[in-house]
Write a protein that binds this DNA or RNA. Structure first.
Lengths: 213, 213
DNA sequence: GACTGTGAAGCCATTCACAGCT
DNA sequence: AGCTGTGAATGGCTTCACAGTC
């Protein structure tokens, strides 16, 4: 089998292109060039073409890309031509925000259940869902065939939650706790650390201040 | 002036090292080697040394690094030896989560005010703060000398909020709306797009499935 | 003429391997 | 002996420039 090796940065941009194409499609646009895509999302045209080329030839020379067709391909490439039910653990502010977020309830994703450790929160209503006790995690996620788990609990519980997810057969984890989790090598795990991004900002502001001395 | 050119990935890791060192310091550890740091945060020891070397020589050969000293340096490098009041626009689920988040209220950061467009939300209490009308943004942020703005509103308002921030003299923006904002080149802007990370997960899960055919 | 697809070149980041210190 | 700091080598991503197609 031809194993295609795609840079992670390319996948990230595919997601951005895809969202942009969705908007164009809603606006009834039918054809677009790599130049216009580049302009719309803030990268170089060559980058756009190179990225798409990892997955095939989707355009027509002299013309450009068909918006609908390309959109369909990007969705398929990203694995969004199927349903991805999510399980969120943690029903605090962040957990609630994620549960009701459009990004987590569109494009193939759907928050299917929310769990919490705190008995006071169990049974509470979030949108259409009722918060479930963490003890129910293995059973419910198996029943709903959930393959993606989201960790939105405080740091001290995060590793324990990760362990439960691993044992329950969840294949990939999106972790919002700012610590490094230990999981088996075959698990897909991504960390979103909100304060890292903040600290990148302050570093760069500091740099600029230093340079203008 | 010697302009030091540091990879963005290095800055990201500095933030991770710094948080790790904080934990070690709390636990009373005094000395640590690049090997142990690497192990603790999941990178290679050479990477740790190279990263630190961008900023100076902090270690002692044959011994390692002093935890407290190195922690202090990392905080200074990241610009966290000063206070960074933040202004958050948007008091929905995400805005609330961020306002009360530990990452946004520690290590030099402090959510100083929260704004909203919706009159029904203005005046509501979030932690110690009262939600302010967006019209107050220029005046309040100037008074509090706020240099970082956080955008947590729905997509259709995001560009307008960015414009207000630019006009009010805010220097850097953390944007949670999944669209590409147009701002002057001298603005520091970072985008956090939660669904990009999700789609990276599904892409990789799809890849694995394809490879195991 | 316009725009895609792509090898080659250039650039940037990570890893290697070892000299230098304690 | 142990561990840092760093030039050199490697590997990977991005940009360039142009051949190919409509």
């Amino acid at each position: 089998m031809k194993t295609l090796r795609v840079p992670e940065a390319t996948v990230t941009r595919m997601s951005i292109y895809s969202r942009f194409l969705e908007r164009l499609d809603r606006n009834g646009m039918t054809t677009i060039s790599s130049n216009e895509i580049a302009d719309g999302v803030g990268v170089s045209p060559a980058q756009v073409r190179k990225d798409l080329a990892y997955f095939g030839e989707f355009g027509t020379r002299g013309v450009g890309y068909n918006v609908q067709t390309l959109l369909k391909y990007t969705l398929k490439i990203l694995g969004l031509n199927q349903a991805w039910p999510l399980a969120i653990v943690g029903s605090g502010n962040l957990g609630q925000a994620l549960s009701t977020s459009r990004g987590f309830n569109a494009r193939g994703f759907r928050v299917a259940c929310v769990f919490d450790y705190d008995a006071k929160r169990v049974g509470k209503r979030i949108g259409q869902l009722l918060v479930q006790p963490i003890a129910q995690f293995p059973e419910l996620t198996r029943k709903e065939n959930i393959r993606i788990g989201v960790i939105a609990v405080r740091n001290s519980l995060a590793q324990e939650v990760a362990n439960i997810m691993v044992q329950s057969g969840v294949q990939s984890i999106l972790n919002f706790a700012p610590i490094t989790l230990r999981v088996p090598a075959d698990m897909e795990i991504r960390n979103v650390d909100l304060s890292i991004t903040l600290e990148l900002l302050t570093f760069n502001v500091g740099l600029k201040a230093a340079q203008s001395l």
